[in-house]
Amino acid sequence: MASIKVGIVGSAGYTGGELLRILIYHPQVEIVFAHSASSAGRKLSDVHTDLLGDTDLQFTDQTNSEIDVLFLCVGHGDARKYLEANPVAPHIRIVDLSQDFRLSANTTYQGKSFVYGLPELQREAIQTAQYVANPGCFATGIQLALLPLAASGLLPEEVHINATTGSTGAGQKPTPTSHFSWRSNNLSVYKAFDHQHLQEISESLEQLQPGFLPASGGSLLQRAQQRINIIPQRGNFPRGILSAIYVNSDLSEEAAYALYTSYYATHPFTHLSTENVDLKQVVNTNKCIIHLEKHDGKLFIISIVDNLLKGASGQAVQNMNLLFGLDETAGLRLKSVGF
């Protein structure tokens, strides 16, 4: 198969940098351009210094249509603006890492709909798609923790989630809550009960378990809030998300493991662990690892992902692999940091 020609818009940020790190060594990819208006003319390694010795590519402020797939690594709200200002040729596939096209009410571009790109939920739809909306990082880890229950109609009326993310989840642009002096030796809650990823989580769960959301009660977000209690936290570490979730359940621990193992049997990046887990097992990988425990009438679920890889750029490459009929794992057999 000929190399897949790739263009990246927003390649100087965290997700753009991670995408470059993966694609430079992807066996079937040629990077045609790495777009960044602010860094045009500079080497990739001038900005992503760990790429020194890996590539001589330079950032550019120009794009072209001589590509097969375009990755949009821009801020939320900016992907739609970019596509409106820079229409993409019909033959080009798009993987958008922003939240602009994730929700079912806002998926259309050039008469075609973006497919929600969670392979463990929609692998077949992704394989035949033109455009893919990459899921959010919190949404990825939480959905993977809950999909097997929803697929069997076993989600109860309420789901309780406490999820802690690393500072890279806030993006590269410094903010008062992302710089080192504030984040170090600190912990805080933000967007309690109304995090923006709640809407995409609820759409996926409702897709597998119709009736999980109340039929009425306001907007999608308001209806989701009646069922899903999410407490996001800012952690004092750079990358990774640990989601600690509990639901009422009649399943035994053994039955729960059997259910999850069966659901993920054909999905190469989601794994079950009978031992407790820690974030370093998934940092720098495209894995999600799930641990289950039964406590009286409650099922306790821990889900861990790297927010920049399985929660962003790694999953984007996984989606590209599916779009072009490649091995789903191509370029993504990555080792965790360990220590």
Rank of each mutant, 00 (worst) to 15 (best):
L326C: 06
P210W: 06
D96G: 01
A312E: 03
S188F: 08
G153F: 06
L332G: 04
A256V: 00
K287V: 10
A151P: 03
A265V: 14
L72P: 02
E120Q: 07
S3C: 09
I22D: 01
F212E: 04
A215G: 15
G117L: 00
V283M: 03
L221E: 08
Q172F: 10
H295S: 14
T63C: 09
N236H: 12
S65I: 05
N276G: 13
Q207A: 09
L308W: 01
T274L: 12
D54N: 12
F339A: 15
E293A: 12
Q315I: 15
S178M: 03
L83H: 03
P210I: 04
D68Y: 06
Y25D: 12
T168Y: 14
S167T: 10
L144R: 00
I22E: 01
Q143P: 09
F180H: 12
P156C: 08
T128Q: 14
L198Y: 02
H291Y: 11
K112E: 10
A145L: 13
L220I: 04
L213M: 00
N162H: 15
T165N: 13
N134Y: 03
V88Y: 02
H160D: 14
F339W: 14
Q28T: 10
L144K: 04
S252E: 02
G13V: 04
G331Y: 04
H291L: 04
A244H: 15
D78P: 11
L52S: 13
G13P: 07
R42L: 09
E253W: 06
R93S: 03
A85I: 11
Y246K: 14
L121M: 03
Q58W: 12
D56C: 13
Q143A: 15
N185A: 13
T270W: 02
E18Q: 11
G75K: 08
H195L: 14
Y109K: 05
R123Y: 01
G169Y: 01
G217I: 13
L308G: 09
R183A: 15
L72M: 08
G136I: 07
I142T: 05
S313R: 00
Y116Q: 05
E293V: 08
G153W: 02
I245E: 05
C137K: 03
L208F: 15
Q207R: 11
E200D: 12
A255E: 11
L326Y: 03
N319K: 01
T60M: 10
L299V: 02
V132H: 01
G117D: 04
S3R: 13
P90S: 08
S152T: 12
L20Y: 03
L326M: 06
